[in-house]
């Protein structure tokens, strides 16, 4: 009801969407409430916890700090769009399963999206680099150890797959 609305065109997980949105609607709420993609989670809504991280044109971004209108003409990937198909997991998702990289699973979406970008840009990271890469993602359950192990293992799997699985 309040304020003005704008029409935006975005591609989300490969599907083009054309939507009328309020200008103050955050990208996170647009994804979660308008599109029903509730895999992106809100943990702090002030840009620190990283749970809401999505990929905007391939770059990780806090969807709580971005307005939906700012995503106009952008290509967005959320956690729902990481896996290559509905039967196959992304190597990162597989590795998170194998290394107990998640407990409650609330921060997981943001960490996965962050790592998708990171491993694309740095396919052979050191443990320190992985820790640095996820230093903007808070996890209260795991102590990060399983996440770091999973990321390193996923990097190995991705390298072995010849970088094909992005």
């Amino acid at each position: 009801m309040t304020g003005t609305t704008r029409r935006i065109s975005v591609t989300v997980n490969g599907t083009p969407r054309d939507e009328e949105v309020e200008v103050r609607l955050t990208l996170a709420d647009f994804l979660r409430k308008r599109l029903g993609l509730t895999g992106t989670h809100l943990g702090c809504e002030h840009g620190v916890c990283g749970a809401c991280t999505v990929l905007v044109d391939g770059m990780s971004a806090r969807s709580c700090l971005m307005l939906a209108v700012q995503a106009d003409d952008c290509d967005i990937t959320t956690v729902e769009g990481i896996a290559p198909s509905k039967d196959v997991l992304h190597p990162l998702q597989e590795a998170f399963r194998d290394h107990h990289g998640l407990q409650c699973g609330f921060c997981t979406a943001g960490i996965l999206t962050t790592l998708v970008e990171f491993l694309r840009d740095n396919p052979s990271p050191s443990e320190g680099e992985v820790r640095e890469a996820i230093s903007g993602n808070l996890c209260r359950c795991t102590g990060y150890q399983g996440i770091v192990d999973a990321a390193l293992d996923a990097a190995r799997r991705l390298r072995e797959a010849g970088g094909a699985a992005r």
């Binding site: 979660r32 509730t38 895999g39 989670h41 896996a83 997991l89 998640l102 699973g105």
Partner: peptide, 21 residues
């Protein structure tokens, strides 16, 4: 044993309180 909980959570298909509409 691998966790029963993980698959939906990894795919973004968990059902947390704010996901209920």
């Amino acid at each position: 044993v691998r966790r029963l909980e993980d698959l939906p959570l990894l795919r973004g298909r968990g059902r947390f309180i704010d996901d209920i509409a």
